[in-house]
Nucleic acid binder design. Structure first.
Lengths: 201, 201, 201, 201
DNA sequence: AATGAATGAGACTTCATTCAT
DNA sequence: TATGAATGAAGTCTCATTCAT
């Protein structure tokens, strides 16, 4: 019985993810959502207090999946650079291969929800027990390979380009093949690593 | 007479900019917009066919202002690096000092409008007469200081971090002082410039 | 269960019929319609896509009822004249006794809808399997009692006076008693029948 | 000065006639009316208290023109039949050649205005000084060629078919050539004249 | 627990009318 | 006198949410 309920909730969340990604929060009526989930409208409200809660729970789940994907196969014995490249590559792979999740997150972070959630997360990340694997990596970088900059700046330099490029990829403007992904990852690394000596310009 | 009319349209656009930035397109009813502009609802429709047209015209204006701001004080006799740093700094300054414009643009690019507009712009940017000053700089870089990568990738590496950081700044998570801005600019440059020889790590 | 649903749609259509007849399409707001039907505004839109569809479906239903009423008790073994008189009498009776239907139809045929619908019907009527009982009668008139004239002309001579008089009756300008109805029917017949010899003038 | 004003008023009425005929009262905004008349919106309100008054005055004018046209060239020394045929023919000619006037009148008579106006006219027509030329003819018919029926019935038999056929003609369903017009006129006469003896069927 | 018909607040938009210039 | 920018009441329609079955 329990697994059945969970299943139904999952079905709704899956339908919501797709619909929100494709049409946006505002253009995805609960009725259509229910229809897509093959469920009565009322049933949605049995599992989620209202539309907002559905979005929040969806965010929580998607974010969790993303976090898991990012740290996959990261060998902590490798160099900071190697680990970073792996993290970025994981990130790109996951979002490229999960466009619904990507679009959902993009929307989420640009909605009123997003602001609060972001502040919440950032505060956590500035504390000791960071959840963000990138921040963990930066803070544990004993080799001093990474620039000494405020967390948000490093975060921006590492994440920003990826999200930006993915948007173009989703719009069909770029083909995200392995070569390109490698270039991106290395570019991001260049942005945060301490430059070697030599003609800086 | 003429300036009066222009003023009224401008008043509406200004109110719209603020309201859209603060509440989002969907949560900014035309009635509230009119109220904020101290204007009758019907008057908005004298100047704009509908809500969409208002948004489009607003985008056009904001984008224009942004473009102007980016290229301000860029000395084309300077090195590619110097020019790049100036462009990035201009970009950050403008958006930091014009949060409404920033939030509006962010929203716009994540709306159905945005997709089309983005594709449109990108296509232009791949053509000969580029409008994007960054792309112009990259393409005219005779000193070979910049990596040879597809336009969208360079674009992402240069722009992405900035937008990402600005979001945090808007949320009050970082203070964007001059030092930080300089770090960001240099980080972006590091991401796209050709690395000097030496230990890659 | 089924009859309950049907009932509700019927209730709305009935309210619409009355309201449209009394106030006209344009002066019958959906809100008032809902109120008269003792139904929420939104409910109307569950059964009808929009106001137009409501009007169209209403037309379909009313027209059907009218067609049924016209051919009632018409004995096809009787003379063309007898059948014609019966048809006309039926027509007058039905419209006199259903003023809402009459006013609705009048309006409908004078609206943008009406034009199309009329052309549509006329085209059908010119074809083989006529739906209009009057046209059927004229075409099957083997006794050559009816003038040889284009369909629309016969139609006009038969129908026109009836509608015209009914308008006066609705406005309270005439009392449509049986004697009057008989006179009308005979008058219409005189208009279309082949005159007997004699001093034509 | 006076003629100038009158001219401008006439211009407005002409534009109104065309617009109302083509788009209907409800779909003819005052702004568009002013535009078509090449006049400021405010100017319309100088000559007409409001939209209703404009419609009323227009009706008055159009009706007057129609009355004039109907009685044109009617020789009172001719037989009742001849006069009748002339009246009907005049009526058809005028309305066929003035589609705007026809459509305007049709609309007018089916609007809330129409009801009142009609009652008003009918009352007059039942009185001594009849304005309707058809009624005058019927009442002055000393030859007893016309059936003895209530005014409205005769009216309906004479007018009804004409209006009905004209609607079809306007919709492009019939070509109103002279032969057809003659048939119509004779048909109408047959409807109201006292039938000659002979096998009534 | 599941359903979906019913609801009505609220969004967008139109347009008759006014009034300052 | 003529104008047309400005207004806001009112109309159509959507959709999140409820609740009886």
């Amino acid at each position: 019985m329990l697994p059945v309920k969970k299943t139904k909730q999952k079905i709704i969340m899956q339908a919501a993810l797709e619909l929100f990604a494709e049409q946006g929060f505002h253009d995805a009526p609960m009725s259509q959502l229910a229809e897509q989930a093959q469920v009565g409208v009322g049933s949605v409200y049995r599992y989620f207090k209202d539309k907002n809660e559905l979005i929040e729970k969806l965010y929580f789940e998607v974010d969790e999946a993303l976090q898991m994907a990012i740290i996959k196969n990261v060998d902590q014995t490798l160099s900071t650079r190697q680990q970073f490249l792996q993290l970025i590559t994981n990130l790109i792979h996951f979002l490229r291969d999960h466009p619904h999740e990507f679009k959902f997150l993009e929307q989420y972070y640009h909605s009123p929800f997003g602001i609060d959630k972001k502040r919440e997360k950032l505060l956590l990340e500035n504390g000791a027990n960071q959840k963000n694997p990138f921040m963990q990596l930066f803070f544990s970088d004993k080799t001093k390979a990474v620039k000494t900059l405020p967390g948000p700046v490093l975060h921006a330099l590492a994440f920003g380009p990826v999200l930006f490029l993915l948007r173009d990829a989703m719009a069909g403007l770029v083909e995200l093949d392995d070569a390109l992904i490698e270039h991106m990852a290395k570019g991001c690394w260049d942005a945060i690593r301490i430059s070697t000596a030599g003609p800086a310009q």
